[in-house]
Amino acid sequence: MTPQKKDINIAFLPFERLDNMSFEERVKYIISIVKQNKILVIDGGLNPEEEGELISETMRNIGDEFTGIELGSINLDESEKKGFVEGLRRAAFHILTGRRRGLTIIGPARIVKDIKRNPDNLNILMK
């Protein structure tokens, strides 16, 4: 049986694009892209507070058309905390380069069935 052909729109976003935004702006920007039925891939991990705010902002936007998101984020800066010195090193890296280590995938729940997390990678299951 031939699989049904579907257009999938994937937007790749460098984390630097978000780095100059405030916490709220960042989350609103992410949701605005996902609401266009795009799967967003960001080359950086979100921190837990951003994930929490992203869920809250998703809830504020839910209606008949937009039913929410599937989210998967690997934040190596958070998961590999190794004490004070390592924390300082990571903070310095972030300040100097503006980069976060990790990966985030966010997709509209109407298109993406699930984003499964294995500790080291993310798998997207489409509907």
Partner: peptide
């Protein structure tokens, strides 16, 4: 159920933070 979900990770991450 599989416990390693984003919701569980987000809850635990926020509590830790």
């Amino acid at each position: 159920k599989n416990p390693y979900t984003q919701v569980n990770i987000t809850i635990l991450g926020n509590l830790e933070a």
